[in-house]
C-alpha cells in the first residue's frame, strides 16, 4: 500500500498516533506530527511512498512538534526531533517541511556507517548509475531534477549510498529541495514537475521541494553499479565543457566528498579506489540544461 491510497483522515491519524511508517530506499522511517498543514503537505509530497509492513522495524523515528518560546511568545515555532533529540533550534512553523527533510538527511548522514555516503546526486540510465558529486551551491539538485524528468531514474539528489563490499549503489529517492532562483528555473523548464510549497526564510533562502517521480520510488529496491562520475558546476553563460578527469583527481574529490570516509578507513579507501577505476570520470561545466542533458545522454548511451 502507498501513502496516496490512504484517506487524508487516516493519514493524519497515523501522523498523530503511532506514526506514519514509510520506506525510503533501504531505510524505514516513522514520522509523527500534530501539525495539520505539515500533514497536508506530506500527504501530497509523499503520495508514492510505500508503507512499511507491520513486522518491519523503523531505523529512524522522527517528529515535528510545536514549540513555545519565552522570548518570542507570539511566534509559531516548530522543532524537529529524531529519537527524542533536537539537532536544530526551533524555526518558524512555515519551515516545518524543509526542517523535516533536512533533519531526516542529517540523521542518515550521522548514523549510517555500513554504507559509504557520498555527498552526491545519483541517477540511473541503461542499468548503470551516474554519480554527480558536488558541494552545496553547485546546482546538483537542479541538474538532477532535470535529468529525472528526461528519462533518468532518481537514486538521490543528496546521497550516493554505496555498499563498499559489492560496489552497489542503493536508491534513496526523497524530496529534492530546490533553492532560490532554481525554483523558477525548474518551473519554467519542467512545468510537469510536481513542486511543494515555496518556503521562504530558511538558512538556505527560499526552498521548494520536488516530488520524486513515481517510477523512481516504485523501483527503489533496485540497486545498480556506478559507471560514470561527473563533477558538475553550473556557471552563468559558460559554454558547455565535459572533459575527462584524471582518476587521482576524481579519487581526491570523492574521498573528501564522502561523509563517512574517515570513519570507514581502509574499507572506504578500497571502495573509492575500485569505484574510480571502474568509472569514466568527467568534469562538467554548463549554463543551460539542453546542452548539458545532450552531453550526459551521449556519455550514458549504450
Amino acid at each position: 500500500m502507498i501513502v496516496g491510497q490512504l484517506s487524508r483522515d487516516t493519514f493524519r491519524a497515523l501522523l498523530v498516533g503511532s506514526g506514519l511508517r514509510v520506506k525510503a530506499g533501504p531505510f524505514n522511517l516513522s514520522i509523527r506530527t500534530r501539525l495539520p498543514y505539515l500533514a497536508d503537505q506530506l500527504h501530497r509530497m509523499y503520495a508514492h511512498y510505500a508503507l512499511m509492513d507491520e513486522a518491519e522495524i523503523a531505523e529512524f523515528h522522527v517528529q515535528v512538534i510545536s514549540k513555545r518560546s519565552i522570548r518570542r511568545p507570539f511566534a509559531q515555532l516548530i522543532q524537529f526531533e529524531v529519537d527524542g533529540r533536537s539537532p536544530f533550534p526551533p524555526v518558524p512553523a512555515e519551515q516545518a517541511l524543509a526542517t523535516l527533510e533536512w533533519g531526516i538527511n542529517l540523521a542518515i548522514a550521522m548514523r549510517i556507517n555500513h554504507l559509504l555516503l557520498f555527498h552526491s546526486a545519483a541517477v540511473e540510465r541503461n542499468g548503470h548509475v551516474l554519480l554527480l558529486p558536488a558541494w552545496p551551491g553547485s546546482g546538483k539538485t537542479t541538474l538532477c531534477t532535470a535529468l529525472i524528468h528526461r528519462g533518468y531514474r532518481l537514486f538521490s539528489d543528496e546521497f550516493g549510498l554505496m555498499d563498499p563490499q559489492s560496489g552497489n549503489f542503493f536508491p534513496l529517492p526523497r524530496l529534492m529541495p530546490l533553492k532560490n532562483q532554481s525554483i523558477k528555473v525548474i518551473r519554467d523548464y519542467l512545468p510537469e514537475a510536481v513542486l511543494g510549497p515555496e518556503i521562504p526564510g530558511t538558512l538556505k533562502g527560499t526552498v521548494a521541494h520536488v516530488r520524486p517521480p513515481q517510477e523512481s520510488i516504485e523501483r527503489s529496491d533496485e540497486s545498480a553499479k556506478a559507471r560514470w562520475i561527473v563533477f558538475p558546476k553550473w556557471s552563468a553563460n559558460a559554454s558547455l565543457q565535459l572533459e575527462p578527469l584524471p582518476q587521482s583527481e576524481a579519487f581526491l574529490l570523492l574521498a573528501s566528498n564522502a561523509v563517512n570516509y574517515e570513519v570507514l578507513g581502509e574499507t572506504a579507501f578500497d571502495a573509492v579506489t575500485s569505484l574510480v577505476r571502474n568509472c569514466e570520470c568527467r568534469k562538467l561545466v554548463y549554463s543551460g540544461f539542453d546542452s548539458a542533458l545532450a552531453a550526459l545522454d551521449e556519455l550514458t548511451d549504450d
Binding site: 570516509y261 578507513g265 577505476r277
Partner: peptide, 22 residues
C-alpha cells in the same frame, strides 16, 4: 602502507593514522 596506482599518481593509505595521502 597501502599503495595504489591511479594513472601514474599514487594514493597511499596509512593504516596507523587512518589517513589517505596523494
Amino acid at each position: 602502507l597501502r599503495v595504489e596506482s591511479l594513472e601514474g599518481e599514487f594514493i597511499v593509505f596509512q593504516r596507523e593514522a587512518g589517513k589517505t595521502h596523494f
